[in-house]
Nucleic acid binder design. Structure first.
Length: 472
RNA sequence: GCGGUUAUAGCUCAGUUGGUUAGAGCAUCAGCUUGUGGCGCUGAGGGUCGCCGGUUCGAGCCCGGUUAAUCGCCCCA
């Protein structure tokens, strides 16, 4: 016998869990629709060519590849058979999608003739990453993405951030939305000296909340980037200012991009990027509802390989969470000005954010937000005592459903105890018992499982009686 | 890709310095109660102690390997 098992990092969702996940998705969907977003879905499988090269080297390694059908080895060049990395591109042409943004880009390019721009779409589907699973990290997980394609105004960023706030408020989860801008970080380039130093700097400062500020300084020294430590220290100083506006003013005053021995072109680019960022962020802030939960986080450096403007990250900030609860971000996104460039359609700007359904669920559960939701069914379970009662039970159940009341007939004429146990376990408020007595009188013994009271109700009065008890 | 921890019934876990036939709670099923539940009582079924090997008179327990899960690093939702 084979022991049943699940691939690492995947999960089954039992009814209780799935109902809650679906409830979360319904809340999000309602927000998305109310802001004028339309749904799309794309296939789980994409051509590997579509996916590769979009997520950096590390992302490419995390792609799930699908082995070609048929004699795939026979078609692979002989000399590559010992080199699994080179071989993989010959034996695999498809892979599972890694996120929803790249499929969106492909979709937009392929359907550009039919779409109305700006195109606002939402998409809630699973994605797959061949990552090592751990707490809050799965190999199959759901993203709920909203993107605006073909519009470059900060109005878009403001709407998306507002949708974050709106959604999490409706879910009842306290969050903090952190915002940064690629331009502010680009302004550091002259001081850091080179693009590769800039990249390493970003990797390092992104760890600040984990290893601390001194940890980052030490990390920079370890990376032989001692010259970057003053930049980091200045950034921390700015970060300590208490308002969104004050941090921006610090950038305005300091002109961090002005470095004496840097080349003029680099300084000029830094200046342009910085001024654009300051302008965008000021405007963005002015458009947002006045919320303490939106902060400018100068150390936020996520996913900069493809973002070109504002970047966002959402983390849980809820007093009901255990003090040691840490799960990384539950949402993130940003602006990418050349979304569709890789597919041959230039100059299509886009901005989008993602809701990490699985982490939102895990966080809400840890905060105890599901503790009180009852799984009760405000409906009626019909309990036939014998086969002769099936017809009356079926008819009663049908009538109840037609009146908008959930109802089912128990699956057999089992012992009453067993049927009542089922009703209790499922959380039914009412049961309707039907046996020979009820059949003779064309009525139902309607029993309230909370109070234990029961009375015979004629078929004509059943709906009204049930509605009265359930209060609907 | 790298490191730590764990692995005993469907689930959560006990299991003493290695010593008869491996236990509990929950869950399931049956009975107490021919058509009245939640509680209770009685009973039943359910285990190759992850897998392979070693040490020993004797291994769930000690040792080696292996697989899987889990936590952390990298990266990310």
């Amino acid at each position: 016998m084979q022991k049943p098992s699940l691939p690492s990092g995947t999960r089954d969702f039992a009814p209780q869990v799935l109902k809650r996940r679906q409830a979360i998705m319904r809340v999000l969907e309602q927000v998305f629709l109310s802001h004028g977003f339309d749904p799309i879905e794309t296939p789980a499988l994409e051509n590997l060519k579509t996916l590769q090269g979009k997520y950096g080297d590390e992302g490419d390694q995390l792609l799930f590849r699908i082995l070609n059908s048929g004699d795939f080895m026979g078609k692979a060049p002989e000399e590559l058979r010992s080199d699994s990395k080179a071989l993989s591109s010959h034996i695999s042409d498809r892979g599972l999608r890694y996120d929803l943004t790249v499929p969106l880009a492909r979709f937009v390019v392929m359907n550009r003739g039919q779409l109305t721009f700006p195109f606002k779409r939402y998409q809630m589907q699973p994605v797959w990453r061949a990552d090592r699973p751990q707490k809050g990290r799965y190999r199959e997980f759901w993203q709920c993405d909203i993107d605006i394609v073909g519009a470059d105004s900060v109005l878009c960023e403001a709407e998306l951030v507002e949708m974050y706030l709106e959604s999490f408020a409706k879910l009842g989860l306290g969050v903090q939305v952190r915002i940064n801008h690629r331009g502010l970080l680009d302004a550091l380039l002259p001081a850091l000296g080179s693009k590769s130093a800039w990249n390493e700097f970003m990797i390092s400062i992104d760890k600040a909340d984990k290893i601390g500020r001194d940890g980052v300084s030490q990390d920079l020294i370890n990376r032989e980037m001692g010259h970057a430590v003053p930049v980091w220290e200045w950034l921390c100083e700015a970060q300590d200012l208490d308002s969104f506006e004050a941090k921006l003013e610090a950038f305005e005053d300091r002109k961090i991009y002005e470095v004496e021995d840097a080349n003029a072109q680099s300084v000029e680019q830094g200046k342009t990027a910085c001024e654009k960022a300051i302008h965008d962020l000021k405007l963005l802030k002015s458009l947002l509802p006045d919320q303490a939960s939106v902060v400018l986080d100068l150390t936020l450096a996520r996913g900069l390989s493809y973002y070109t403007g504002a970047v966002f990250e959402v983390s849980a900030d809820d007093a009901r969470l255990p003090a040691d609860f840490r799960l990384g971000s539950i949402g993130g996104g940003g602006r990418y000005d050349n979304l569709t460039g890789a597919f041959g359609l230039a100059d299509v700007p886009g901005v989008g954010v993602s809701f990490g359904l699985d982490r939102i669920y895990d966080t809400m559960e840890a905060a105890g937000l599901f503790a009180e939701d009852s799984q009760a069914i405000a409906g009626v379970l019909l309990c036939p005592m014998d086969e002769e009662s099936f017809a009356l039970a079926t008819q009663a159940s049908r009538d109840l459903r037609a009146a908008g009341i959930p109802s089912e007939v128990y699956t057999s004429a089992a012992k009453l105890k067993k049927q009542l146990d089922y009703a209790n376990n499922r959380g039914y408020a009412l049961v309707g018992i039907i046996g020979d007595q009820e059949r003779a009188e064309q009525c139902i013994m309607l029993k309230n499982l909370q109070t234990g009271q029961q009375e015979k109700i004629g078929m004509q009065q059943l709906i009204a009686q049930v509605k009265g008890v359930l209060g609907v």
